[in-house]
Design a protein around this nucleic acid. Structure first.
Lengths: 154, 154
DNA sequence: CCTAATTAGTACTGATTCGGTCTTCAATGC
DNA sequence: GCATTGAAGACCGAATCAGTACTAATTAGG
C-alpha cells in the first residue's frame, strides 16, 4: 500500500506522453488514449481535471485538444498528484490544518509524521516531467544517517 | 492522498508507545488502548497482526500481553507499514512481480516509478522506532540535484 | 450559419477497500 | 477449573475508487 490512485498513476503516464511531444502541439483525448492504451473515458476525465488545475491548456472545438501549460521541466510529479488527488498527506494529521485530532498535544508521533511527509513530498517535488520522459539518473534521493546530521532547513 | 491506512497509522503510534516502555515488559491491549486513546477492538486487531508478523511477541493468559520482539532501534517504520498493509508499492506496477501490465514494454514511466518507490521505501526503512520516540533530527532525507548525481547503488 | 468535432461539467454505478465491531475459540496463570 | 488474555476470523456500514454515460458549451471549417 501507501498507494497512489489510478487517477494519479494514469495522469503521470499521460503527462509524460505530453512531455515527449513537440511543445505547444495539441493532442485530443482519443488519440492520447490510443497511444497510452488506456480507456478513453478515463483519459478524458483526467485531462479535464489537469486542465482545470492549470497543468494543461485546452482548446475546444474541431481539431481542439490539450497541450502542456508550461515546459516539461517546470512540471513535477508532485504537481500532478496534487492536481488529481489533493494535497500530499501520508496521514490524516499531516493534512488537516489543525485542531481535529484530540491527541495533538500528547501524540509524540505527529511531528515525526510531518517530517516524513515533507521528505516524501520534497522527493516528488524534485522529479520533473522532463526527467520522467527518460530513465532518470539513480541516486536522486539520498538518505543521510540520522546520527550524522547537522542542520537542514531550520 | 498518497495516504497510509489507519491501521498503519495507529500501528505506528502503538509501536512507538511500546518503544517508550522498559523493554521486555508486557502490556495488554486494554491498557494500551486507554493510553493512546484509541478504540480497544482496533488496538486489539492491530496488535494481533503485529504479533503474527513478528514485530511483537504475545503472551496469553492472565497478566499476559505484548512486548517488542526486538530492540526499538531494530524496528523501522517501513517494517510496521509492511506488516499491516503489505509491501510498500506506490503504484500497482511497482508491486506485482511481473507480467500483468500489458504496457510493461512500452511504458517509459515504469522504471522511474520503481526508483521513486525505492526512494520512499528507503526513507521509511531508515526511520527506527527509537527515533520516532523522540523528535528526530531534521534533514534525515536529503535530495540531491539530478544533474549533479554521479553513481549510487548500481 | 450549419455541422461535426471536441472539451466541460456532472451525475451515476458497481466493486472494492476501509474502519470498526462482534463472536467464538485457545492458552495461561492462579 | 476459572478468570483473564490473546487468536482467528466473520461480519457490516460507509467511503472511496475506477469507470461510464449523458448533456451542454465551444470552435473550426465549409
Amino acid at each position: 500500500m501507501l498507494r497512489v490512485t489510478k487517477l494519479a498513476d494514469y495522469g503521470i503516464v499521460l503527462m509524460t506522453q505530453f512531455a515527449s511531444y513537440r511543445e505547444s502541439q495539441t493532442h485530443n483525448a482519443r488519440d492520447l488514449a490510443a497511444e497510452v492504451r488506456l480507456p478513453l473515458p478515463m483519459v478524458s476525465k483526467i485531462l479535464k481535471v489537469l486542465a482545470r488545475e492549470g497543468l494543461l491548456v485546452s482548446h475546444r472545438g474541431t481539431r481542439g485538444g490539450y497541450s502542456l501549460a508550461r515546459a516539461a521541466d517546470g512540471i513535477t510529479v508532485a504537481d500532478i498528484i496534487r492536481a488529481l488527488e489533493g494535497p500530499i498527506a501520508v496521514t490524516e494529521c499531516t493534512d488537516k490544518v489543525n485542531g481535529d485530532c484530540d491527541l495533538e498535544r500528547v501524540c509524540p508521533v505527529r511531528s515525526n509524521w510531518h517530517r516524513i511527509n515533507e521528505a516524501i513530498r520534497e522527493a516528488l517535488e524534485k522529479i520533473t516531467l522532463a526527467e520522467m520522459r527518460r530513465p532518470f539518473p539513480p541516486g536522486l534521493v539520498k538518505l543521510t544517517d540520522p546520527r550524522s546530521v547537522r542542520t537542514f532547513h531550520a
